[in-house]
Design a protein around this nucleic acid. Sequence first.
DNA 1: TCTTGAACCTCTAGTCACTATAGGGACTAG
DNA 2: CTAGTCCCTATAGTGACTAGAGGTTCAAGA
Lengths: 141, 141
Amino acid sequence: MDFSIGELARRTQVKVPTIRYYEQIGLLAPPPRTEGQQRRYDKTSVARLAFIRHARELGFNIEAIRALLSLQDNPDQSCSVADRIASVRLAEVEERIASLSALRAELQRMLEECACGRVAECRVIETLADNSHRHGRLTDN
Amino acid sequence: MDFSIGELARRTQVKVPTIRYYEQIGLLAPPPRTEGQQRRYDKTSVARLAFIRHARELGFNIEAIRALLSLQDNPDQSCSVADRIASVRLAEVEERIASLSALRAELQRMLEECACGRVAECRVIETLADNSHRHGRLTDN
DNA sequence: TCTTGAACCTCTAGTCACTATAGGGACTAG
DNA sequence: CTAGTCCCTATAGTGACTAGAGGTTCAAGA
């Protein structure tokens, strides 16, 4: 009926230290313990952790997940908050794709133009040294 | 002829603490100092820092930049090393775009299907709770 | 019942590439 | 000479984990 942290890890594909970390930062409630202080989980823990994992895979940060979890715990609220969180994330992803596409184009150009001789004529190095380019800074996922 | 760290920052759009950080980790050589221990830079510093900045904007990590800088400093070598570094980066970027495109699709689906009523029927929350999905983990840039 | 060995525990520190803060010293324009 | 801006070092914090040390508990087999 109840099982260890290792078994929870196996069932959710979340690593053991990560589970403990989620508990520490309050994403997961502290579970009951055995007499020897080992954590014991049940099926509801599996569901909650799977929810968190899926949200992380979609790139939601911990604060967003905290908000989504509290919505899940209070199902009578309007879901416009969830909608907004997801929309913000979608916008981030789209921006990120756009900026990475620009990077890809520049990297491809660098590589195509490089005759691959001495570094002295290398387009890769030359392109980097040419300061007429402007991108944004690469930050998050 | 030579100028302060603040002026270097202005000319390269790299923040002052970041310049000091680059010096600390050995990307930039320690420059000469005034009697009062303030750093003085010249035009070659601008070029080198612009190179680094451009490489960072393309998402090369510090170790890759270290390698690219050493190639720039030894222009007689074959540029196949530079080529490989850039190719690896291109592959990373392409993988990243692919994975973000999948995320975008799922986020869009979640949002389209959400009628935006109570959380109880919210597709966003429901989708996250549904553990039949599998993505990779979002890690780097 | 005892023993072995895997799995568990806590705590601390490390990752990456910065960014922020504290507490001071140097430089420059008026 | 003074005001104000810039600069210095050193340390700690960011996000979301991951790794390691050093010790304890549990489950299965003998």
